[in-house]
Nucleic acid binder design. Structure first.
Lengths: 155, 155
DNA sequence: TTAAATACTTCAGGAGCTGAACTATCTGGT
DNA sequence: ACCAGATAGTTCAGCTCCTGAAGTATTTAA
């Protein structure tokens, strides 16, 4: 089809990893957010937050996990509440904080998102189940380190 | 520091991989583009295109590789040419197409970017050299598949 | 030679994020 | 109990970056 000379061998492993990460990230965001479900459609950040809401979480926690500013989470929460996918409640132990929790519709939507994410993941990565698990293992470590680095600022 | 209950075990491998990819992508883009080099500073896409210009490439090829619209590449090329990091020439075999090529300053900047990318990669991923190579192996496959899927549209 | 396809450009418009300034609540020292 | 300072979230102005449509130049195929 195209005559791309992918002399991919002279790139450092780090740059190779980076390019793969960029490509997979783009496809996941793009194709996940443009999937049509029943009910209202969601933006990229809305999908991301729903995935993190496997458990009720405070907004600040979501901001830290998604590496976004608190004000960005405010907008996402407003959108998700407006369409009835989440419910807000005050934190029992801290009246300043909100806890976001999926409604029944939210849980349903999350299940659909997880399923769709797996589809898109395999379609666009071309990885096998075993390779996916291998990647997930690396991803756990990456996630933990990256979130911590993000919380502490850029050194 | 924070009491995040990361019961990360009940997430599917695909979602785990996704979250790791999101976090690493964010950190790489953010920290790479905010690094100060000598000379003019670059946006995220400018950095990405420079990395792909290890070899002269046509603009359409860059659009496909970076998964962006051609018009986005036009803007990036204009910016990079303005600051003297790339040179444009017509493709010998196709007078419609431009070929972008790094200047000497561009090659220098690319080397600095590659070095900085490796630093940021290890700092924010927490991976070892071996794990990085493992990830690079998966990334090669991901990249090839994802770029092809992008070129052919969303199924 | 002419119609259709391709490569890039220009531009208007929009999504989504940040940072600053603000309100509400909590915490610790006195 | 009270007040100062820290913390959680909100509002908003402004910014960056991207896309999609319409336009130009060139190539390809009929």
């Amino acid at each position: 089809m195209t005559d791309v000379i992918d002399d991919w061998t002279h790139l450092t492993p780090e740059v190779q990893a980076m390019m793969g990460v960029y490509a997979l990230h783009w496809q996941l965001e793009q194709r996940l957010s443009e999937t049509k479900f029943e009910g209202p459609s969601l933006g990229r950040s809305e999908c991301q937050v729903i995935l993190y809401l496997s458990v009720p979480r405070r907004m600040g926690e979501l901001a830290r996990l998604t590496l976004k500013a608190p004000s960005a989470v405010t907008a996402v929460a407003a959108a998700l509440e407006r369409v009835g996918l989440i419910r807000r409640g005050r934190d029992d132990h801290d009246g300043r904080a909100w806890v976001l929790e999926l409604t029944d519709a939210g849980h349903l939507r999350r299940q659909e998102l997880v399923a769709r994410a797996a589809e898109v993941f395999y379609e666009t990565s071309g990885l096998s189940r075993d390779e996916a698990k291998q990647l997930a293992g690396l991803a756990r470590k990456i996630h933990r380190t990256a979130i911590q680095a993000g919380a502490e600022g850029p050194l």
